[in-house]
Design a protein around this nucleic acid. Structure first.
Lengths: 161, 161
DNA sequence: TCTTAATCGGATACCTTGTGTCCGATATAA
DNA sequence: TTATATCGGACACAAGGTATCCGATTAAGA
């Protein structure tokens, strides 16, 4: 079971956007360049985030992507869901209702195996919902260094004009 | 992010094996037939379970697959891991170390985004490890009906000779 | 106002991974 | 010893993720 690497890409991109002043954004090209990623593919992923309402897109020169909400209101779950979609990883196809021993066909009680996987995914989702972009930005900043901070300021001033 | 349906197939197959007397097994054909699944594909998945040590295989006439441990000692996580492998769904490729703002190259502190996804997967895994086959069998039996139980007995006596 | 350049958005090709099947290897039972 | 049942891995096929390009749209500047 592999998660799309688009989740990693966009999570880092959103962390960068969350570090900018409110309302300020960056074009997809810059977001890709910041982590040395394929620009066209990053652009595709940012589209998905825009469709999901995590970011807003601004077309034309000087445009780009900016967060659609406050950093504190965007969780890693929002980003995951934007890229991977709403369907759960485990899909119960009710195979218990197939085969020679299905009896009278009364299957109103939920499938136990599906129930367990459902609880597991709920726990997973809860963990992702518990962390928002503001917290991530704060944590990343805490781990940073003066040199890196200076490089970021320099790079941003170049990109934002 | 989609989980292989082999997880669902083998989870149900193991639940069936867990309901049999200790040491007794069934061939892959029978396990597939019980839920009306593709026999060849079910056989392939059972191979993976055997490699992982969840079940034991017995070749030749009268052979098949049987649980390698007591039902209470096999969790849904064991089955998941046998089919999907050990790698986590989220793979951090350390893109934070790429790009124009990587500074001095000091990245001893873990990547925050990776850390959150790691916690989420740990919670997910813990939930799957908390349920074993004995509990599933008991729960399924509780939800069953006299008609189904009779059909199962009939079917098993035919398969086990 | 018009032109130019920048940027997003969807359509398109490619490649990896999961899905599914078949046949040979092996061991049991007769 | 033979025939049969069963596993195990090698082999095709399909789907979804990866990656790119080009047209549509909009802002900035002349």
């Amino acid at each position: 079971m592999k998660m799309s690497e688009g989740v990693e890409w966009t999570a880092h991109a959103c962390a960068l956007l969350a570090a900018l002043p409110p309302g300020v954004g960056l074009p997809a090209n810059a977001l890709a360049e910041f982590h040395a990623l394929a620009p066209a593919y990053m652009a595709k992923h940012m589209q998905a985030l825009a469709r999901a309402g995590v970011v807003e897109s601004v077309r034309g020169a000087g445009g780009g992507y900016r967060l659609a909400k406050k950093p504190a209101d965007v969780t890693l779950w929002d980003i995951y869901e934007a890229i991977e979609g709403e369907e759960p990883a485990f899909r119960c196809s009710e195979i218990r209702q197939q085969g020679p021993c299905t009896g009278t066909g009364d299957f109103r009680r939920p499938c136990e195996i599906n129930a367990v996987f459902g609880r597991a995914e709920a726990a997973w989702k809860a963990e992702l919902r518990s962390v928002n972009l503001a917290e991530i930005v704060a944590e990343v900043a805490r781990k940073s260094t003066p040199v890196k901070r200076a490089q970021l300021t320099e790079w941003l001033s170049e990109k934002l004009g």
